[in-house]
Design a protein around this nucleic acid. Structure first.
Lengths: 327, 327
DNA sequence: TAATGTAATAGAACCGGTTCCAATATAATG
DNA sequence: CATTATATTGGAACCGGTTCTATTACATTA
């Protein structure tokens, strides 16, 4: 591999001159021309590592995601990627596989990599996380969960729950079954449900039954197969679109028809699912936007500019074919 | 940030001793103990950059993907990620956004980053690619497309096409409509279709109509809305599961019922789609496995061991609910 | 023409590690 | 106890860049 020394030697100048040529550029026109030619001829590419070593800046941003096979994660990632590309940041994406231990590990790994900043798609921010984040002392942004100590961008999960509740009440339902995930996940597991529950109970005496399942479709399906048989709810909510999809599949396999027998709604608004039939009623989250905003915010943090400690994004109820008036 | 010099000074030893402690470890027990304590106390983490600079090894693997929002890409990525994690490689994932120019750019960027190897999920390998790959001189593995010059792992796309054709003929159909993508994409656009077409025409006089569309569901849907109206085919194939899904949606919107009026099949076998109703007949590709195998192979290449120039993976026809005997 | 200012350049130090080599300390051997 | 082998260690060089400082070359002004 050709180095700056090779270029300098061949051009008959000091390597500092070549470096200057590569950067700010206080170089005479003819030297510039000479170096230009040699760089082109030899196909010289500066070694990013050596460069970062002194410059203390890598232009890399680390992203920690909980899983690789989630539509919402991918949409967020798309938003992050497109903005990062625009701004000339390189992404290092690490998958923590839903394990807290790996999350901590990944934070350290990225720190060693000397990334300029880290974006963390969190399911939960524990004190262990906080300790690690404080220790590495790198601009750090949390997505999807609110935290007192660390800047974050969140969705209005509570409001989303309320929106579905209002819709369900508008349709005249009064018997609900809600498939949620672990309450450890404050945003998805707690806020969405709480918003739904509070809104229902504030306006009616209706019954809300709640069952915990997992993000994995297979497990959600199994849970649904058991619960749907027992329940006489007419309006079902899944804590994510994929859970809702699994519930629909179960309903189908149990010969319950959607939305004739039961209505179903979810949260997410994934592109892929909008092509299903019947189309799912859902609360659409601006996943792409949150990714985009994340890079904007993180860049400011890197430049030591002021950023809002917490930003929340709005979402929107999309009424499609899986919900229907209670007969 | 604490450096090796700080540790050395505090321990009263040379930094080479600390370095040795960190690596091979020919260090006396009591020195070790002393350094141990200080490293722990100060929370010292070696700077990966400085380390890589001399060691000429980064333990990073670059992955270039065509898009972030494709289920197949994500499954491949999952496979790559899980194996890479197991082997202690760090992943740098870059998204080329389906643009050849960005692909080339990404190859250079990763080279500058001094990754140990690159995995390229290709839609096409042009001579421009080949030139770049040759130039950077880094272990390079192509996934999904066959190339003479560069090691690759591919799917049996031709065979997959044949399998769907056989299935369609077995069901007694004889009027086919095939939604494909650009023939520039040799694997998805050409081989799958060619396998299908050859098998059909080898066994019957049936008519195969072919229409080109895009990977994007929205576009595939629009194309399908136009073509389905004109066509009287009874068996429809989509070049990917997502295209097939878009076609199903169009059929649904045109009040054609699947599989009563028309049968539909795709390629992929994505997890998510297996939860749809009706479940899609498809050829299941071992996406996770290919990712896994990719890391295994690339590691050998990095260690300069011999690898097969080309490896092809088998796939499997999964008959579900969207295909039915021709009445 | 001498004096002064400015642009371009060379050289050295540095970033934070690894690695080679020589020096020293310790253990084993005769 | 002297000699030799082996284990530890310190110091210096190096990886490929950037950046600071001093020097040189050239142009401008009086």
């Amino acid at each position: 591999m050709v180095t700056i020394n090779d270029i300098a030697k061949e051009a008959g100048v000091a390597k500092s001159t070549v470096s200057r040529y590569l950067n700010n550029g206080s170089v005479s026109p003819k030297t510039k021309e000479k170096i230009d030619a040699i760089v082109k001829k030899r196909g010289y590419k500066p070694n990013t590592f050596a460069r970062s070593l002194k410059a203390q800046k890598t232009n890399m941003i680390g992203v920690i995601i909980p899983r690789l096979d989630s539509p919402s994660t991918n949409e967020v990632l798309s938003g992050i990627d497109s903005k990062a590309y625009e701004k000339g940041f390189q992404l290092i994406i690490t998958n923590a596989n839903q394990e807290t231990e790996r999350e901590i590990e990944d934070i350290y790994t990225l720190a060693k990599q000397k990334v300029d900043g880290i974006i963390f798609l969190a399911k939960e921010v524990t004190s262990k996380h906080r300790k690690t984040i404080e220790e590495i002392d790198i601009p750090f942004l949390v997505l999807g969960q609110e935290t007192k100590e660390i800047p974050s961008i969140t969705h209005d999960d509570y409001g989303a729950g309320k929106k579905i509740a209002q819709h369900a009440l508008d349709l005249g339902h009064h018997d609900f079954l809600y498939f949620t995930v672990s309450r450890e996940d404050k945003a998805v597991g707690r806020d969405r449900y709480d918003g739904f529950y509070k809104e229902i109970s504030r306006n009616s005496l209706a019954k809300v039954e709640m069952v915990e399942t997992s993000f994995l479709m297979r497990e959600a399906y199994n849970t649904a197969m058991i619960e749907l048989k027992k329940s006489k709810a007419t309006f079902i909510v899944g804590a994510t679109d994929t859970i809702a999809l699994a519930v629909m599949k179960a309903a189908n396999d149990l010969k319950m028809s959607v939305p004739e027998d039961i209505s179903i709604a979810g949260y997410g608004g994934y592109d892929l699912l909008s092509f299903m039939s019947p189309a799912l009623t859902t609360v659409k989250y601006p996943y792409f936007t949150i990714g985009d905003l994340a890079i904007e915010t993180l860049e400011k943090m890197i430049l030591k500019e002021e950023v809002p400690h917490q930003q929340a994004l709005e979402n929107q109820l999309i009424i499609k074919e899986t919900t229907k008036k209670f007969k």
